[in-house]
């Protein structure tokens, strides 16, 4: 364990990161206060039965434009315990790189068959599965021509495990210039979905994305 807190790095070419990243070194938490920094998310959440299939807005609607993919994975803590019964909230852009979010003013093309929002629960082994449309990359900084590579946002909440992350795609040209990927360095590789054999005719590509929730919080009540 380190004897001083981290200094957070700022994502290069990321204006928001410059505006919002704390400049002071993070403070260490005294031992007497440590347990109070371990939120426990109550398992009160629910999902609707069709939310695992983000390739359409509802079961009676057609497929959205683009390449349908399956994403599966297992969620564990760093000590290897499956994070069972956790909520995975997923959001992603459509084939054209547009979010169906009221604050996305990019003007990119909307798709009336794409919502890009889904919630699934992990099973007893910590495994999850969802379908999505392979998201489009989008131009995040038109002024300097910097793109965000294709990615799927994921938020995991289960007991004292809490993680917000993104799954990236292998071999994408914009991976190397992404500010957050740059900060991850060699560890960026862990955030890339691993292509695997497609097991169903309903999707065109399939990826495994195992998630490991790090830090003491995730394992606090083990």
């Amino acid at each position: 364990m380190g004897n001083q807190g981290r200094i957070l790095a700022i994502g290069p070419t990321d204006n928001t990161s410059d505006q919002r990243t704390p400049r002071q070194r993070l403070r260490l938490i005294p031992e007497e206060a440590r347990s109070s920094f371990v939120p426990v998310v109550p398992a009160r959440y629910a999902t609707t039965p069709h939310e695992w299939d983000m390739t359409r807005t509802a079961p009676d609607r057609p497929r959205a434009d683009g390449v349908p993919i399956e994403v599966t994975g297992r969620v564990r803590t760093a000590s290897g315990r499956p994070v069972a019964g956790a909520l995975l909230e997923v959001w992603s852009a459509n084939h054209y790189g547009r979010y169906r979010h009221i604050e996305d003013h990019s003007g990119l093309q909307l798709d009336e068959n794409h919502l890009g929002l889904g919630r699934v629960l992990t099973d007893d082994e910590g495994c999850y599965r969802f379908w999505a449309i392979s998201p489009g990359a989008y131009l995040a900084r038109p002024d300097i021509g910097r793109w965000r590579p294709k990615h799927i946002h994921m938020s995991l909440s289960g007991g004292s495990s809490r993680l917000i992350t993104q799954m990236y795609f292998p071999g994408e040209p914009n991976n190397a210039t992404d500010p957050m990927a740059i900060l991850m360095g060699d560890a960026f590789e862990r955030n890339i979905g691993r292509p695997r054999e497609v097991g169903t005719a309903d999707v065109v590509q399939a990826f495994d994305f195992d998630i490991v929730v790090g830090g003491r919080n995730a394992t606090f009540f083990e």
């Binding site: 990161s17 009160r44 760093a78 000590s79 604050e103 996305d104 938020s155 560890a187 195992d210 929730v213």
Partner: peptide, 24 residues
């Protein structure tokens, strides 16, 4: 050394879905 390498945390970006709100 026995620990699995953790998935990197990443920014939630500007579009965390309002859809996921829970009034409770």
């Amino acid at each position: 050394s026995n620990l699995l390498p953790a998935t990197n945390e990443d920014t939630c970006g500007p579009y965390f879905p309002i859809f996921f709100a829970d009034p409770g």
